[in-house]
Amino acid sequence: MEAFSDDILVFIKKECSRYETRRSAIIPCLYKLQEKRGWISPEQIGQLAVAMDIPPVQINEVMKFYTMFNQQPVGKLHVQVCNNISCTMNGSRELTDHLCKTFNVKSGEVSSDGRVTVSKVECLGSCDTAPMMQINDEYYENLTPESATKIIEKLGK
């Protein structure tokens, strides 16, 4: 188990005093932890609990409540295709199936080379440009199966 680097510890300290309660800093700190590897391991939660002086169970509760924190390793490119109503009407299922087939993964799983994870997510608030997907933090809109593949391949290089 790797100890937290100094910049993370500094960040945690800063965030803890930024908000009215120390607990409010849990989400920002979890984001920070996820930044590096793309997911958060239980050991990291244990360490964070010590660093923040909050019971680990409360951090775990928060982490498991929110969908944006990954509890499992994800690929370098975390492709999240919106599968809610407007996107479904505009062909997001075909898009997801196509991506899964192209990169040879099942929805929610990491591809064998560890590069891509394709997952279905709920509405990302970009319904006017459906179908759309989010890769890591970026939105990609008005997709077709072909254009989506191109984008991912370009980013993967």
């Binding site: 800093a25 989400i27 920002p28 979890l30 984001y31 928060v62 969908t67 944006m68």
Partner: peptide
């Protein structure tokens, strides 16, 4: 303050809970 992916945090008390660092 950034949420982390929960529709329920759009409900005002849910949002307050989230802001307090709870679920």
């Amino acid at each position: 303050y950034r949420g982390a992916g929960a529709y329920i945090c759009g409900e005002e008390t849910g949002m307050i809970s989230s802001l307090e660092g709870l679920k």
